[in-house]
Nucleic acid binder design. Structure first.
Lengths: 199, 199
DNA sequence: TGTACATCAGTGAACGCGCGTTCACTGATGTAC
DNA sequence: TGTACATCAGTGAACGCGCGTTCACTGATGTAC
């Protein structure tokens, strides 16, 4: 009973903390994260402005939590999908599908990732670069293992950049389910990662 | 005399207008364009807050002017350098050098371009996409003309994305003159645009 | 078991401050005749 | 040439408003004994 009550209290705090992150993503997708105010986010999350401080010291700390927790788990999910598939072609398709699934399921988070990756906030760029470099490492090892010619690190980095660009383009598509973009991104990734392959 | 005086007055207005754009780029590089206020920009430009309205209706209009005038002319410059060089390898080097020259000469503008290309402001994204798609068209025609295999449009778009990613990476480099990045970007562009070439 | 105390998430009042915008005004320059 | 008027970039005062932050408080939950 004591443990249960304790869990409920901590869960409630965690719920509000998550709500603050969601509120920031929701508002940030519309006007940009940099333009958000603490009061604006608290209002959207349904709490008093002063309660914000029970969870984060300021907006920058909130943004860092979004990157480490929400963006990080999404990007790690992409990497896992990459390892699941069987051969090279399927692996790239699985990776792109994971990316497109994030766009479909959580467009606000996807916008945050592609925007802050190159935005004005140094801290956010550094954290996202660290997350994305892990994906590049996975790409490199997965695609080097099978073929003759090893994938150079710069090609893996370029592939990640192409994936993020595809993510940004998917966010701007009028019809989200349009299959054209999916194939274009897969083609670009294949060209970058397996330049020696010819049909 | 009448014409000369008229020119001087218009030149002075143009000078302040340009100063407003520069001030916005300077401040935006530090905190993000979306976070900028009209008063903050006017202060940085050395004019009274109310004078801002003599040039732009609001911050969005200022941003659109930055894209159309400053960013547009820089990007058109990249495309011109692309046409100048002789063969394929030199052309890519010239393009990347033009991009790196923009980073060196005007890092604030470069940051604005790469950030707003994928930022939260729909208007800015659309305008920048239009500018960059011209560069993609030039890439496609230049690299299709010479070889056997035509460059598909998606590869030209991907090359532009790689160039912008290289621009963002150059902005984050501690040592700006470091030649390593230049070669990496050229390699990625070559792989994307001439997949059939083998030494 | 009950009692007394500690912890801590959420709150409302209050603060000083900078914001975007309006308005009427100044003064230099351009135009008409 | 001079004179009278129009234009218009820049300005300072003023407005109401939302901001970030502080503070002391409430009340539910956890802990000690």
């Amino acid at each position: 009973m004591v443990f249960r009550a304790s869990l409920e209290k901590k869960e409630e705090k965690e719920r509000i903390r998550a709500e603050l992150m969601r509120a920031a993503l929701r508002l940030g997708a519309a006007h940009g994260f940099a333009s958000l105010g603490l009061r604006e986010v608290a209002r959207e999350a349904g709490i008093a402005p002063t309660s914000f401080y029970r969870h984060f010291a300021d907006m920058e700390e909130l943004g860092m939590a979004i990157i480490r927790e929400l963006a990080g788990s999404s990007l790690r999910g992409w990497g896992e999908r990459l390892g699941d598939a069987a051969d090279g072609g399927e692996r790239l398709a699985a990776l792109v599908d994971a990316m497109l699934a994030t766009v479909a399921r959580d467009a606000e988070l996807a916008r945050f990732i592609v925007a802050e990756r190159v935005g004005a906030f140094d801290t956010f760029r550094a954290l996202l670069r660290a997350e994305l470099s892990q994906l590049a490492s996975q790409l490199q090892s997965v695609f080097t293992g099978k073929g003759a010619e090893p994938v150079p690190p710069w090609a893996a980095d370029a592939a990640v950049a192409l994936l993020c660009d595809g993510c940004a383009r998917a966010l701007d598509e009028a019809k989200p389910g349009l299959p054209g973009l999916r194939l274009l991104v897969i083609s670009a990734l294949r060209r970058m990662l397996s330049p020696g392959e010819r049909p």
